[in-house]
Design a protein around this nucleic acid. Sequence first.
DNA 1: TAGCACATGTAACTCGTTACATGATTTG
DNA 2: CAAATCATGTAACGAGTTACATGTGCTA
Lengths: 203, 203
Amino acid sequence: MSNSIYTYAITVPSTLGYALLGLLARHARTGYELTQALRAPIGYYWTASHSQVYPELAQLEEQKLVAHRVIDGPGPRDTKRYRITPAGRRAVAVWAVRPPDAAHNRDQLMLKVYSMWTADPVRARALVVGQRDAAAAMLRHYGEIERSMRQDHGELLDDPTTPQFSSYATLRRGLGFERHAVAWCDWLLAALTGEKPAPPEPE
Amino acid sequence: MSNSIYTYAITVPSTLGYALLGLLARHARTGYELTQALRAPIGYYWTASHSQVYPELAQLEEQKLVAHRVIDGPGPRDTKRYRITPAGRRAVAVWAVRPPDAAHNRDQLMLKVYSMWTADPVRARALVVGQRDAAAAMLRHYGEIERSMRQDHGELLDDPTTPQFSSYATLRRGLGFERHAVAWCDWLLAALTGEKPAPPEPE
DNA sequence: TAGCACATGTAACTCGTTACATGATTTG
DNA sequence: CAAATCATGTAACGAGTTACATGTGCTA
C-alpha cells in the first residue's frame, strides 16, 4: 500500500494541545473541566470551545501524551478523566521554553482607532469611555485575584518551580496590561476632548 | 426558485474588509500596496496576506464600498487602483466607533509562562531574556517612528480629525505596550533568578 | 416542571496561512 | 543573468466558532 517510509506524517500538538497539556500537568481533568479552564484562567490569553477540546484530546491520546479512564456517566456518553503521561509532561516542558511563533497581536480596537478620525467625535468619545471602563473593571478583577492568591498561597508565589508562581506571573502581566490600557484611554479621551497643554494661539 | 424574501443574505464586510476601507479612506491604493500596509503600520495590530486581500477587495467592490480603475500592467494581469466610495466611507466611520467584538487576546507567551514551572530553569531564563530583547527592540523602533512623526507632522497630531492623529494614537498604545512588556520581563527575570527582597530564613 | 450544570460528541462554516502559478521591470 | 520588487490571482489546509444533537441529575 505504501510506496514511501514517510507515509505516516509525524504530528505535533497544536497550541491548543499544549494548553491542554499545561492544564493536565497540574492535575487530571475531564474534557468539560478543561473547557471551563479555557474560559478562566487560561481564557484571559487563550480560548477554545468544547467542540475543539474533545477532538484535540483524542489526538493527544493517539500521540500517547495523555490517557483517560472512564469514571461514570451522567449523560448518554461516558465521562472520561484525562491525565498527562510522562511523555506528555516532557513535551510541555520543552514547548514552554521554545520561543513563541512571531505573534500577530490582533487588536480590533487599534484598527478602529486607526480610522477614528473619519467618525463622529461624540460616538468616538463614547467608545473610548466604554473601553476604559471595561479595562478598569478587568484591572479590579485581577486585583481581587491577586489578593486571594497572596492569601491562599504566598510563599509559593516566590518559587518558580511551583504552578502557583506561573499563574502569578501571567496575572502580573494582565495587571500591567490593563493598567496601561486605562492610562492610554485616559490620554486618548483628553486628546479627543481637546485638552492641549497651554495652546499658544487662542480661538 | 425562491421561497423567501430572505434568499439574498445581506453581507457586511469582515474585520479585514474594514481594515482595507480604513486604509483606502486615507488614499487610493492597489491590492499590493494594501498588502504592504498590512505588514506595517497596520501589521502591528492586524495582519493579512495578499491571498486574503484580493478576494476581500472583490467582495467590497460587490458591496459598492470600493471601486477600481485599471492603471497599467507590469505582469500578466491588470494593475488595479482601488478608491473608497462615499458609501464605503460611511461604513468605516460607523464601524470605527462601534464597540469591538469581545477580544480574546491570544498570547502564546502567556500560555508558555503558565507551564514554565515544569521546564528547565536555564532555558526558561533564556526564553524570557529573548522576549525582553525583542520587546526592547520594538520599543526603540516605535520611538524612532514617534520622532519622525513629530518632525513631519506635529500640529496635526493634536487634531483628532486628522489621520495623523489616529496613527499617533495607535503608536502611543504600542509604546506603552512594549514598555510594560519590558518591565514585566525584567520582573520575571529577577523572580526566576531568585532575588527575594530580604528572605527571613537563610538556607 | 423548567432551567441549569454536567458531560460528550459531530457538522458546517469562516478566517487565515502556505503553497501554487504567472510574468514584467529594475537592480546588483 | 540572477534576484528582488511589482502585481494579481487560486487551491489546499488548519484553526476556530456556531449550531446541531443527546441525555442525566439537581435546584428554584
